[in-house]
C-alpha cells in the first residue's frame, strides 16, 4: 500500500483489522486502516492522540 504522504511502501499485515494503525517505514506517518472488504481497504491519516484518550 502506498503511503499518502511520501508514497513509500507500507506493509499491511495479513490479519489486518479495521481501525488498525499502520506506520510508513520511510516517513513515519501513521495511518488508520479504514475500510476493509474482502481484498480492499483504504488508509486515512490516523488521529495520534485525542484529548480524552487514554487508559
Amino acid at each position: 500500500m502506498k503511503c499518502l504522504e511520501c508514497e513509500g511502501e507500507i506493509p499491511i499485515p495479513e490479519d489486518v483489522i479495521k481501525g488498525e494503525i499502520v506506520t510508513c517505514p520511510d516517513c513515519g506517518v501513521s495511518f488508520e486502516v479504514h475500510k476493509i472488504s474482502k481484498d480492499s481497504f483504504e488508509l486515512r491519516p490516523a488521529q495520534v492522540e485525542g484529548e480524552d484518550w487514554g487508559e
Binding site: D15, I17, K18, G19, E20, I21, E32, V33, A46, Q47
Partner: peptide, 14 residues
Amino acid sequence: LYDVVRTEEKMLAK
C-alpha cells in the same frame, strides 16, 4: 468494542 486497533486489541483478538 474499540475505536482504534492497537497492539492490545490485536493481542486480545489473537
